[in-house]
Design a protein around this nucleic acid. Structure first.
Lengths: 227, 227
DNA sequence: GAAAGAATGTGACATTCGTCACGAGCGGCC
DNA sequence: GGCCGCTCGTGACGAATGTCACATTCTTTC
């Protein structure tokens, strides 16, 4: 079991305001493990052992339906936490978490964490803020899947990603392609083929340019107007 | 401004464990108002004034898309609370809340509530549990809308409602029709016509019987197997 | 540098689902 | 009792989207 430092604990979003002594005590309970690409970090329906912090690598949280189709609920980047829900409602894991790359993951046991939450109101308030933001983003996701077309959802993804990760070039914003079309489809609630075709149409309209490893947003305003 | 008693405050789910003195102090900040059927209690995008408790009547939380279609996120019954999200993430209302009946609603101002949360860890923990359950149910909603057919979603609604509110009769469980087909459609992410037709099909298959004011579940097992 | 494995592009097709239009039933409300 | 408004039923239609099959391109591995 790798040893965990107090710095790592203080680096966990919800726990940044812990006193150092408490962080050191707490560090003894935290376990770090590495997961290979495609390995499951948590599985839907299984009992919860605690909540997780993604230290490095990327992962996806998804649910899968009867026919094998999947819906991604959230993509995880380093620093993100997940698995808080079952810690606080006592149920099983609501979804499956799968490593996309090689991932380092810290596991914070439920019991220790709940103690901290009850003792440090700042932690509880930080966590409430986190839950609130997550609920808000679920609201958006439901609206998009239910009320918007696939093209609108893809346009939104591209527009948002371009704003967050886009790199300026003479031709427009370049988005490094961080996920496959398969995953993009699962993210927007569709299937690979439809995503491929939809992006082609947007390319023919001169809005974007689909390249192998990146996407060039030629006309951000036009992209925005599709949403 | 109607006066509010400490008992009412202690009856609010998250606040049940407050000491009486605190509840009495807190009661002075709470405001009760009545809303007519169809009146908006909160509007998407507007700034948040606090969180609400539905004291009597029923209401729906929904988002509406460009074409006027609506997606219901949650149906509210007496005792339910809503509007907590913007209190804790600082954003505007994420959705619109509309009274279905004549409703009595208590408004708990943000500032007073946040103070209580910071001071009483039990309140914070209760609230975390509440948020966690809501996140879990959103997970279910997303999966259903994204991965299941309209028939499956309707079957699930009928099955769940029959279990919760159904009354045993010789012919099967009777569900009082508490919402219109329009609202049922908005709840499962579809449109009225499709809901009407789908329920007809289920009726022809002998699973349910659609009556004017109620729905009879003839064969609960068959209903379950449709999900 | 082959060979295997991913990821992607694309055509043809099936089906669900949403849209439009209209009629019927029921319940207030003067 | 008769006019309205709301809810519901239903047919016809079209569009969006999912399915299947297969070719192509790129990446990784041995």
């Amino acid at each position: 079991m790798p040893s965990v430092t107090a710095e790592l604990v203080l680096g966990i979003p919800h726990l940044a305001m812990l006193p150092l002594a408490e962080a050191e005590r707490f560090a003894r309970d935290v376990v770090v493990r590495q997961y290979a690409a495609r390995e499951f970090i948590a599985v839907e329906g299984e009992p919860c052992r605690g909540f997780f912090v993604l230290l490095s690598g990327r992962a996806r949280i998804f649910r899968s339906g009867a026919d094998g189709r999947e819906q991604i609920l959230r993509l995880l980047a380093p620093g993100d936490t997940f698995g808080e829900v079952p810690v606080f409602d006592g149920g099983p894991n609501p979804a499956t978490v799968e490593a996309l790359d090689l991932c380092d993951v810290a596991l914070v046991p439920s019991a220790a964490f709940r103690l901290i939450v009850a003792r440090y109101p700042e932690v509880a308030v930080a966590l409430l803020g986190h839950f609130a933001r997550r609920l808000r983003s679920f609201t958006e996701l439901v609206e998009q899947i239910s009320l918007q077309t696939v093209q609108q959802r893809i346009a939104r993804y591209l527009y948002m990603t371009a704003r967050e990760e886009g790199v300026e070039t003479p031709d427009g914003l370049v988005i490094p392609r961080s996920i496959t079309q398969q995953d993009l489809a699962a993210l927007v609630g569709s299937v690979r083929e439809v995503v491929s075709r939809t992006m082609r149409v947007m390319e023919e309209d001169g809005v974007v340019e689909i390249r192998r490893k990146e996407i060039l947003v030629r006309d951000a305003a036009a992209l925005r107007s599709l949403i």
